[in-house]
């Protein structure tokens, strides 16, 4: 099993190497990077290109580690017992399997994505140490040992909201998705919009990278925002000349709402442009 990018996902050499190392050594791969650089997409693309089933676990602030393994629905069992249902005797029918259990049970090797692990409680990664290391866990209610048939390929994404414990990090490979340079960005855009006019692309990228250079932006526009913006430009059929014109009236790029998502950023941007005009 080797991953080498796909028709819809441009992976740099660094990234493919890290992915392949993680696949070969069967260790989790921790992915960090600016929002919108395709961290979550990676797991989907790897699963698709290797032809493996994908199990996704989206983590929220309330997610507990146990929920990825299994949950015991005690309340339904209590209710059923009141109603005198027959299945009450079997505790197993009230065990709800979590994402990891489903992946462990899978007949073929699989890909598991633990998305935004930093959203969860600070102890969350620690609670999963042994489970991810040995790929097995114990179900107390049914006294059953669940062991993975095939060690799944595990992707973990993080947005850096919380630091992860060292013990957890030691068990992972790590890759930081850098913001793509112009060349890579052109390849990415070509994958998403084949047949885009080269002039429009060049002008749009110019505006986009200039925008990213502005100091003090709270949220720099990212790849996914660029793609959205291009989609809008195409839908509105905006000619490339509009982007190029640096004259006073159209100094603000059209539809910039797709790139700047923060009111303060838009203000800052407008103020900068205003100042630039004054200097002229």
């Amino acid at each position: 099993m080797r991953f080498s990018g796909s028709d819809t996902y441009v992976a740099t050499r660094d990234l493919t190497l890290a992915v392949n190392a993680a696949i070969t050594l069967q260790r989790p791969l921790l992915i960090k990077g600016e929002p919108g650089t395709g961290k979550t997409m990676l797991a989907e693309e790897v699963a698709a290109s290797l032809g493996l089933p994908l199990f996704e676990w989206h983590v929220k602030s309330t997610t507990k580690a146990q929920q990825g393994l299994y949950e015991y629905d005690a309340v339904s069992r209590l209710r059923d017992s009141q109603l005198g249902e027959a299945k009450v005797a079997d505790i197993g029918s009230y065990i709800v399997k979590g994402v990891l259990w489903q992946a462990f049970e899978c007949e073929t090797p699989s890909v598991v994505l633990i998305d935004e692990i930093d959203k969860a409680d600070i102890e969350f990664p620690n609670d999963l140490l042994r489970e991810l290391d040995r790929m097995e866990f114990f179900v107390y209610e049914t006294r059953q040992q669940v062991r993975a048939r095939h060690r799944p390929v595990l992707f973990i994404t993080s947005n850096n909201e919380k630091e992860l414990p060292d013990a957890f990090l030691r068990r992972c490979f790590f890759h930081y998705i850098r913001f793509p340079d112009k060349e890579t960005m052109t390849r990415i855009v070509n994958v998403h919009f084949p047949g885009l006019k080269p002039t429009l692309l060049r002008e749009a990228l110019e505006v986009f990278f200039e925008l990213r250079e502005i100091p003090g932006l709270k949220k720099k526009p990212s790849t996914s925002e660029l793609l959205d913006w291009l989609k809008l430009l195409l839908a509105e059929d905006i000619p490339p000349e509009v982007l190029r014109s640096k004259d006073q009236k159209s100094a603000i790029p059209p539809l910039h709402g797709a790139l700047l998502k923060n009111e303060q950023d838009v203000h800052l941007f407008e103020r900068l442009i205003f100042m630039a005009r004054q200097n002229r």
Binding site: R13, D14, A18, K32, L164, R170, C172, F173, F174, H175
Partner: peptide
């Protein structure tokens, strides 16, 4: 270089 960085360094 890439491999050793992915294995040894866990923080950008």
């Amino acid at each position: 270089y890439v491999l050793s960085r992915a294995t040894l360094v866990k923080d950008e």
